[in-house]
């Protein structure tokens, strides 16, 4: 058996991204939606690192590093927002939080 083709990594990244989108679209709890976002960011990280390997340059990993930092910051603030929503609305279902509409 030969080595693993790089395209498999990319396909895996795509599948994980799609799963993240599915979670975002289909789940009703705010926290789960947030976790789906984290899954999407991770899949993109995988793609960056894969290409970094392909091109034999480390820039991809740098980008991946930045993505991670931003994701962490975003998780902190986002969870704080979720806490506020829970305090104001009393619910964690996304469909209940829909007052910004026409």
């Amino acid at each position: 058996m030969g080595h693993v083709p790089l395209s498999w990594y990319l396909v895996l990244s795509a599948i994980l991204f799609a799963l993240g989108v599915a979670g975002f679209v289909y789940r009703k709890s705010v926290i789960t939606v947030f976790m789906s976002i984290e899954l999407m960011l991770n899949s993109v990280n995988l793609s960056f690192v894969a290409f970094s390997y392909q091109l034999q340059r480390i820039d991809g990993q740098i980008y991946s590093f930045f993505v991670m930092v931003v994701a962490a910051a975003e998780a902190a603030v986002g969870l704080a927002i979720i806490l506020t929503i829970f305090k104001n609305r009393g619910t964690l279902q996304i469909d209940e939080v829909d007052s910004m509409k026409l």
Binding site: N42, N45, V49, Q61, S64, M68, A72
Partner: peptide, 14 residues
């Protein structure tokens, strides 16, 4: 994939 630093950061941060 040979990204040692990223792997470690992934485990620690995430």
């Amino acid at each position: 994939l040979g990204a040692e630093f990223i792997a470690m950061t992934q485990m620690i941060v995430y």
